[in-house]
Design a protein around this nucleic acid. Structure first.
Lengths: 94, 94
DNA sequence: CTGTATCCGGTTTGATACTG
DNA sequence: CAGTATCAAACCGGATACAG
């Protein structure tokens, strides 16, 4: 799930709410939580603007970019093989 | 966690109990469970020998191999960047 | 040896309400 | 808008017992 954030954030700097829309389906709380960890790990940079209303922007750092690159590798794999994979979510087959 | 299985199984065909030792720390139940999914997805092939005692061997399929390759990419990332990352497990810093 | 079923405690999550 | 706190529900993994 944190991976989706990395992916989404990869394109460009995003605000909290933009990120929230981008990741789609993630709850308010989960987004906050899943941002703290990569933030502390130096994968994501958080920049808060003390304006009214508040604006907080999140950006991928260099290690974050590198991680995204590897994650893209997994995505590529998915694209190549997903067709051949019977989804486990499908109802139990006969 | 299923990833560790893919990694371990990558080297060669393994029996259930061998896999259990290889993944180390995984419980009986988890191994069974985490084998079913990639098995149904066609990442792992299960071959049971109707002997006494039973012997079941698990092998990585071609899609499984490809996945393992991408996972290795993530491992590489870890090796390169782990040093720069303050572990979130560290006690809260001042 | 390999595998399934059950119970049970800990973690995680979404909903909601509230703050600056 | 961005974030924290709280609470109940859902989920998950380990332990255990049992079966083929």
């Amino acid at each position: 799930m944190g991976v989706l954030i990395i992916e989404t954030l990869g394109d460009r700097t995003l605000r909290f709410s933009e990120l929230r829309n981008g990741v789609e389906g993630i709850s308010h709380k989960m987004l906050t939580q899943n941002l703290r960890m990569p933030e502390r790990s130096g994968l994501v940079e958080r920049e808060g603007h003390p304006t009214v209303p508040p604006r907080v922007e999140y950006t991928l750092t260099e290690p974050g970019w590198a991680l995204r690159a590897t994650v893209d590798g997994v995505c590529d794999w998915t694209h190549r093989y997903l067709g051949r994979i019977e989804s486990p979510r499908r109802r139990l087959d006969a």
